[in-house]
Design a protein around this nucleic acid. Structure first.
Lengths: 218, 218
DNA sequence: ACTCGGTGTTACCGCAAGTAACACGCAGGG
DNA sequence: CCCTGCGTGTTACTTGCGGTAACACCGAGT
């Protein structure tokens, strides 16, 4: 008797939820990592308590937002990872996919990774921001775990593969993230060069390189 | 005429500053990443405005704290990096030094990297914390730049060494950081194993590994 | 007509960052 | 001896944010 009601309500609530998320997205895209609940509510044309009814608390809204973007990014990454090509080529295109994503929407990226980085003027009060440990970490963690799974599934590295895959997954994601963060800030080189250099690093060129004359070597 | 006065005041102010920093350190070590200005002031036996007179704002205090710890950590890392041994050995001992440091003082580590991660109980209001983008990034950036310099000084990788060294420096630091963060949370294996696995990654075992039977490979 | 669930509002609390404005103690100079 | 600076400390406040309680409207079902 109430199944249609249920579904109607569900979809109605879901639509609201999506609208709110899109509004939040817009305000994040515009205002960068500040984005107070008030601002988001205003952008959505409503007031704070509704946001809280839908998302519980700020973490909930943030998590929902992060899930959206992370899902999209992960889909792209999976596509790059699954492409039919040489391993080196696949690694490069995966790196490139990630870097292209953060390059395309630096605001969103900064919001996801470094929330509450605003606080430009000294009088700016808007510095009480999100927490990061509980949200950006999960984002990176999720990428790390996904990559670990891919590595474990496809790579043959003898015994202890599972442990090794997870270490490598998180390590590679961290490498990608840190290098991308730095690159995004300084733009010292075109993207392809960064991709190539990182792939070189993963390909063991650090071990192969010779010592420079005069020093103790590295 | 006022040179001695000046220096006296200077040293006096510096002593105060150090005392305040040590108090801040203590409260961070105890309370984890919460650490409100009030709490720090109370621990130091004084009140808020004095902290603000000494450090300007919370970012200033945080930066001073971060510099302290980063300096200490960088000194250890430099020592490991400069040890007279094979390159692989030096890389492993550097990784181990970093991981041992974050293992020894996880509270401090979490404060530096993921401030404002507390907020355990839902009723906990103490979630308005620091920003991270302006502080944890500089910390990682600094490590990345240091490592880049070491790489550039000692490694011979042909033309474009400078750019490459910086990419690798930030990338390796990010790998270390992300893997360490994950490991610190889950403790899936002893430290030496993590160190060995990460070094293996840097040594190109990803490229060398064979495909697993049945999949498209990786 | 009367309830009832959903959507929305205003008005408030608590907290933490940051800031006046005032108070004590102690040099030196009339 | 007093009084003027100045460094150090305080109390008491403002602002802005996250989060919540209590009330208001409105369309559907009986």
């Amino acid at each position: 008797m109430n199944t249609t009601q249920r579904t109607d309500q569900q979809t109605s609530a879901d639509r609201r939820r999506r609208e709110l998320l899109e509004a939040a997205d817009r305000v994040v895209l515009r205002d960068g990592p500040h984005a107070s609940m008030n601002a988001i509510a205003a952008e959505a044309g409503i007031t704070k308590p509704i946001l809280y009814r839908h998302f519980g608390d700020k973490g909930g809204l943030y998590a929902a937002l992060a899930v959206r973007h992370t899902d999209a990014l992960l889909a792209s990454l999976r596509a790059a990872l699954d492409a039919p090509a040489e391993r080196r080529q696949r690694v490069e295109s995966t790196l490139d996919t990630y870097l292209a994503a953060i390059e395309a929407r630096p605001q969103v990226y900064r919001f996801l990774m470094h929330p509450a980085e605003g606080a430009g003027t000294p009088g700016d009060q808007s510095e009480q921001g999100f927490d990061v440990g509980r949200h950006s970490a999960p984002l990176l963690r999720r990428m790390g775990e996904e990559l670990a799974q891919v590595i474990e599934e496809r790579l043959d590295v003898g015994p202890g593969t599972q442990q090794l895959a997870r270490v490598w997954g998180h390590g590679i994601v961290g490498m990608m993230h840190a290098a991308g963060d730095w690159w995004l800030g300084e733009r010292p080189c075109p993207r392809e060069e960064l991709v190539r250099t990182l792939a070189d690093l993963l390909w063991g060129r650090l071990a192969e390189a010779g010592d420079k004359a005069g020093g103790p070597g590295f």
